[in-house]
C-alpha cells in the first residue's frame, strides 16, 4: 500500500501531539490527568517510530512501537496502583499537595 503522506507531516503531527501532552503534564494537578498526558506523549513517540519505519520500509519501527506499548502497559499498571494508594491515604489526587520529598 503506497502512501503519499510526506514524512515531515507525520513528524509535525507527532511533535504537536507531544507538545499538547507536555502542556497537559505541566498544567494539570490531578494525578490521573498527568498520567493521561504521559500516555499522550508516549503515543506521539510511537507515531514517530511507525512513520520512520514506514518511510524506510523497515519493520523495526513497528517492533519499537510494540516495546513502547509494553512499557506503557507496565507504567500504567504501576502508576494506577500508586494513584489508588494515594487516594486511599489522602482522599484526593492533588500532586502539588504531595510535596513531602522537598529537598
Amino acid at each position: 500500500m503506497n502512501t503519499h503522506v510526506p514524512l515531515e507531516h507525520v513528524m509535525l503531527l507527532a511533535a504537536a501531539l507531544f507538545a499538547i501532552g507536555l502542556a497537559g503534564l505541566l498544567a494539570r494537578r490531578n494525578l490521573i490527568f498527568m498520567l493521561v498526558s504521559v500516555e499522550v506523549m508516549l503515543n506521539a513517540a510511537g507515531l514517530v517510530f511507525i512513520a520512520a519505519g514506514a518511510y524506510w520500509g523497515q519493520v523495526d519501527g513497528q517492533s519499537m512501537f510494540i516495546f513502547i506499548l509494553t512499557m506503557a502497559a507496565a507504567e500504567v499498571a504501576v502508576g494506577l496502583a500508586i494513584i489508588l494508594q494515594f487516594h486511599w491515604r489522602h482522599h484526593h489526587l492533588d500532586a502539588d499537595a504531595a510535596a513531602t520529598m522537598k529537598g
Binding site: 507536555l22 503534564l25 505541566l26 498544567a27 494537578r29 498527568m34 500532586a95 502539588d96 504531595a98 510535596a99 513531602t100 520529598m101 522537598k102 529537598g103
Partner: peptide
C-alpha cells in the same frame, strides 16, 4: 541552590526536564 530545586513537586520536575 540545588536544594531549592528539590521542591518535591512533580510538575516542577517535569518542567525542568522539558
Amino acid at each position: 541552590i540545588l536544594s531549592a530545586t528539590q521542591s518535591g513537586r512533580l510538575r516542577w520536575y517535569s518542567a525542568t526536564i522539558a
